[in-house]
Design a protein around this nucleic acid. Structure first.
Lengths: 343, 343
DNA sequence: GGCTGGCACTCTCGCGCCGGGAGTGCCAAT
DNA sequence: ATTGGCACTCCCGGCGCGAGAGTGCCAGCC
C-alpha cells in the first residue's frame, strides 16, 4: 500500500470537493484524475485515510469529505501557492496605487482582497506599536475640553478628548497651550511611540506648577493613545460572499457573522502570524480558538512598510475553500500594499 | 362596512404577523384580539383589505400577510411610537456616556442601537457640511509628500496626502510651510466649511509666486477634503441579526449583505430624512430605491450637536419588523447621542 | 503483499400519494 | 351590515418506492 499514492488521493479529494461542493466518491475521482489504479484500490486508500481521520463520510455510502486534519495536511504538504499571473499582479498594483490617503489604501485593500478571493476580507489598520510620532496637536473645544491629536509616521491619527479643570478659551489659556504645544512637540517628535511615552512622563515636572495638573492630564491621555491597543481597527468587506457558499453553510452563518463583528477577536487572530509558507498562516476550522469560526478557515499574513510588520490582513471563508489561490491572493495583496505604504 | 374596523383589523394583522412570523387567519385573529365581531365579518374585511392592496395571501387559503402598502398605512396611521421606560433611557444614556472620543461615541452608538433593536444598525459619522474648521495642519512626510490634516468643530479629522514638486524637508521648505500654515489658519479657522472653501481660493494669489503651485495644490486638496462626500463614513453593527430573521429571509440575505456594503448607498439613504413622526423616517420594502433592500425596511433619523442635524443613523431590518419599538429605539438613541455630542 | 473485478448491501434523494388541517369565499338568513 | 354554515382549495407532513451512488468485502491475480 503506497503511502505516496494515498496522499495523492487525499489531494484529489480535496481538490474535487472544493470544486464541486459535493462528497466525492471513488468513481468520480477516477474520472477527473488519472491515477493509474482502479476504483477498488482507491476505495482501500480512502478507507485508510478515513482511519487516519483525514477524511470522513457524511453517512454510510456517501462520498468522502476532507476533515480539518485533511485540509491541514493538504495545505502543509500537498499544495503549492499558485503564482499569480503578470496581468493579475498589474491589476492589483494599479488598483492600489489610486489611493489618496491611508484610509483609502485600507479601504481599497480590503475590497480588492474580497473580490479577488470572493470571500470575506479582513484588514487591520497599521498598528501603532512600530511607528513613531510625527506630530502632536492640542485643540481647545468648548469651554473646559481639549482635543488631543496624535499623528504618526504611518499617517495614522489618534484623538482623545480630555476634561481640564479650567477654561482654556482665554488669553492665559491660549498662551499656556502654546508653550505646552512646543514642549510636547520637543518631547515626542520623531521618537518611537514607546520612547515618546517615557519621555512624556518627564514633562510635567519641568513646567509651571500651575499647569502641572493640566499637563499631567494631557500626558496621560497621550500615553493612553500611544499604547492603546483597543483602538486598533479592522475593516471588513465581502460578507455577502458568505451567503453564496451554499445551503450547508447557512446554519453556521449567524455565528460566523457574530464572530466577524468581534473586532477584538479578529485583531487577535490577525496578530499571530506564522512564518512558514511564504509568511501566510492558515487556521483551519476547529484550529480556530473561537467557536463561531469553527466552520471557517482563516488565511492571514502580515504587511506593512519597511522591514517591520506593522499589521495583518487576511480572509475568512468556509473550510472548503481553494487554499492555494486564496493564499496566493493574500500574499500578493500584502506584498503590494506594503509596497504602497513604503514609499 | 365600517372603515374604522377594517383598519383595526389591519393593525391586528400587522401586530400578529410581526409577532408570529406566520400568515394570520381570521380565526387566529379573533383569539388574540377581541374585536367584537365574528370570523366571517373579519373575513369580509380581509377581502376588502386585499382588494385595496394592503394585505396579500401567499397562496389560496392561507392566512394574510401585510404588503408594503399595508405596513405603510400601519406606520402612518395605526401606530404610535412606544415610549421607552425610564430604566431603558437611563441605560442608554449611561452606556453612551462612557465614550472617550468621537470614534468611541460612534462605535458605542451603533452597538447600542443594534442590540436594542436586535437588527442591523447603521450610524453615519457626523458630517462635515454643517460644521466648521477648527484647525489645519501640514505635515511633510517622506521627501516630496505632504500630509494635510483638517480638524473640524465636530472633532472629525480629514487627511489627504499630496505630491509636491519639491523636497520640503529643507530649511527653505520648513520656512515656507510655516508661513503657509499661518496663512491657511488665518483663512479658514473658525469658518464654516463652505466659507473656508471660498476663502481658500483667494490664498494662492496673496503669496510668493514661487510657492504658488504648492499652495494651489494644498488648497485644492483641502477643498477636496472639505466638500468630499465620498469620505463620509458609516459604521455597521448587528449584521448577524439578519441570520436570525427566519428561513423565508435567507434567500434575500445575500443581496441585503451586498447592499449593506455599499456605504455610498447607505449614506444616501441616511441623508434624506423626514420630519414627521418625531423626525423618524421609515422606508418600507420597495419604497427603497435599491433592489437589494427591497425585502427590508429602514428606520432612520438625524442626530447631531446643536440645532443643526449633522448626520443620520438608523436600522435596517426585514419589512416584518416591530415598527413602533424600533422607531422608539432609533429616536431615543439619536436623542441621547446628540446630547453627548452637544456638550 | 498489493491490486483488481465483482457483488451484495446501505443510505440518500426525489417523486407521487394521501389525509388532516387551516383557511377561504360565498350564500342565505337575520 | 353581520353572521353561521358549508363546500372547496391548498399546504404540509408522513409514507412508500425505485433509482442511483457509493461503500465494504472477498476471492482471484500478479
Amino acid at each position: 500500500m503506497s503511502e505516496d499514492r494515498r496522499l495523492r488521493v487525499l489531494r484529489a479529494i480535496v481538490q474535487d470537493y472544493v470544486h464541486t461542493s459535493e462528497p466525492v466518491g471513488s468513481k468520480a475521482l477516477l474520472e477527473r484524475h488519472h491515477l493509474g489504479v482502479s476504483a477498488a484500490t482507491v476505495r482501500n486508500d480512502m478507507a485508510a485515510l478515513e482511519e487516519e481521520g483525514l477524511i470522513a463520510a457524511p453517512h454510510t455510502s456517501a462520498g468522502r469529505v476532507p476533515t480539518d486534519a485533511g485540509y491541514r495536511l493538504f495545505v502543509d504538504r500537498l499544495s503549492a501557492i499558485k503564482p499569480m499571473s503578470a496581468a493579475e499582479q498589474r491589476a492589483i498594483s494599479q488598483f492600489l496605487e489610486g489611493a489618496v490617503d491611508l484610509d483609502d489604501v485600507v479601504d481599497r485593500t480590503v475590497r480588492l482582497l474580497s473580490s479577488l478571493t470572493r470571500q470575506v476580507a479582513v484588514v487591520q489598520y497599521p498598528s501603532l506599536s512600530r511607528s513613531s510620532v510625527r506630530h502632536v496637536e492640542l485643540v481647545p473645544i468648548g469651554g473646559e475640553r481639549l482635543l488631543v491629536v496624535l499623528i504618526t509616521t504611518t499617517g495614522r491619527v489618534e484623538q482623545r478628548v480630555i476634561d481640564v479643570g479650567t477654561d482654556l478659551v482665554t488669553d492665559d489659556g491660549e498662551q499656556a497651550l502654546a508653550t505646552l504645544r512646543a514642549e510636547l512637540t520637543r518631547a515626542t517628535s520623531g521618537r518611537t511611540l514607546a520612547e515618546a511615552s517615557t519621555e512624556l512622563s518627564g514633562v510635567p515636572e519641568r513646567l509651571d506648577p500651575a499647569l502641572r495638573d493640566l499637563v499631567r492630564a494631557i500626558s496621560t491621555a497621550l500615553q493612553d493613545a500611544l499604547v492603546e491597543e483597543r483602538e486598533e481597527r479592522v475593516v471588513l468587506a465581502g460578507t455577502a460572499n458568505l451567503a453564496r457558499v451554499g445551503p450547508d453553510f447557512t446554519t453556521s452563518l449567524g455565528p460566523v457573522l457574530e464572530a466577524l463583528e468581534e473586532h477584538v477577536v479578529l485583531l487577535k487572530l490577525l496578530g499571530t502570524v506564522a512564518e512558514e509558507g511564504g509568511g501566510v498562516a492558515v487556521r483551519i476550522g476547529h484550529e480556530n480558538p473561537y467557536a463561531g469560526l469553527h466552520t471557517t478557515s482563516m488565511v492571514t499574513t502580515g504587511y506593512g512598510a519597511g522591514t517591520d510588520l506593522v499589521a495583518g490582513l487576511g480572509v475568512v471563508g468556509p473550510t472548503r475553500m481553494d487554499y492555494p489561490t486564496t493564499m496566493a491572493a493574500v500574499r500578493a495583496v500584502a506584498t503590494y500594499v506594503s509596497r504602497i505604504l513604503a514609499q
